[in-house]
């Protein structure tokens, strides 16, 4: 009987606490400006990319043949490959930061940039002279490219993580992975302003590895960094 009474009174006080909470939250209500999700993501990612571009320019230098490079197809294919991956991942992020919104089969779109670069790489390897194959794969900078891409992706990674933290991701490992892939994709695009490699097999493997490494870092950090 006493137990019943005490549980009664405790649920009464906590009910009052919750009523007070509702009062406070209602008093704090301000109209919400639309569309805060897209704007916040764009801000975080945009600032990150600008900083990344600045670092690439200052520390590594933009490629000296930029003007003629932009006339070649592979320059744009390279950009499309990595920013395509980044765009699909960003699309997933935009959904993952809203509770209750399913991602569906959206990640299948990642196959598109991968298949494009993969197909081109296979063609170059088949049609290129046999003694050049190793160079098509290793280029001049295979050992450095993934690490530099990881470094170039750090500013967008921080910017996006800041944006996502302020929204409401409910699947932290998944959201972290997508934040990492998006930052990796756009970071690699930034690094491409320096890198003169132009063989599809090289780009497929070493750029891909750099972007995947960013996704892995994101997955590791997600549960800790994106928590709210």
């Amino acid at each position: 009987m006493t137990a019943l009474q005490s549980s009664d009174s405790s649920s009464e006080t906590s009910a009052n606490a919750l009523d007070l909470m509702v009062d406070r939250l209602v008093a704090d209500l301000r109209p919400v400006e639309s569309p805060p999700v897209a704007r916040r993501l764009a801000l975080g990612l945009g600032v990150g990319i600008v900083i990344s571009l600045a670092f690439v320019g200052i520390l590594l230098g933009y490629r000296p043949d930029m003007a003629s490079a932009t006339m070649t197809m592979i320059f744009w294919v390279k950009l499309a490959y990595v920013s395509g991956i980044g765009a699909v991942a960003l699309w997933a992020v935009e959904r993952l930061v809203r509770p209750g919104v399913p991602t569906g089969n959206l990640l299948l779109w990642l196959l598109l940039p991968a298949a494009m670069m993969g197909g081109l790489a296979v063609m170059e390897l088949i049609h290129g002279p046999a003694n050049l194959r190793e160079h098509l794969i290793m280029g001049f900078s295979a050992a450095a490219a993934p690490w530099r891409i990881l470094a170039a992706a750090l500013p967008p990674l921080v910017g996006l993580a800041w944006a996502v933290r302020g929204l409401a991701p409910t699947r932290l490992v998944f959201a972290g992975t997508m934040v990492g892939l998006a930052a990796g994709g756009f970071g690699a695009a930034s690094y491409a302003m320096h890198c003169q490699e132009s063989a599809a097999p090289f780009l497929l493997i070493w750029y891909g590895l750099g972007v995947l490494a960013c996704g892995f870092v994101g997955a590791m950090l997600g549960p800790r960094v994106l928590r709210w």
Partner: peptide, 10 residues
């Protein structure tokens, strides 16, 4: 409740 309030823009 606090989370619903803070994240209502999402």
């Amino acid at each position: 409740l606090i989370a619903i309030h803070a994240k209502r823009a999402t």
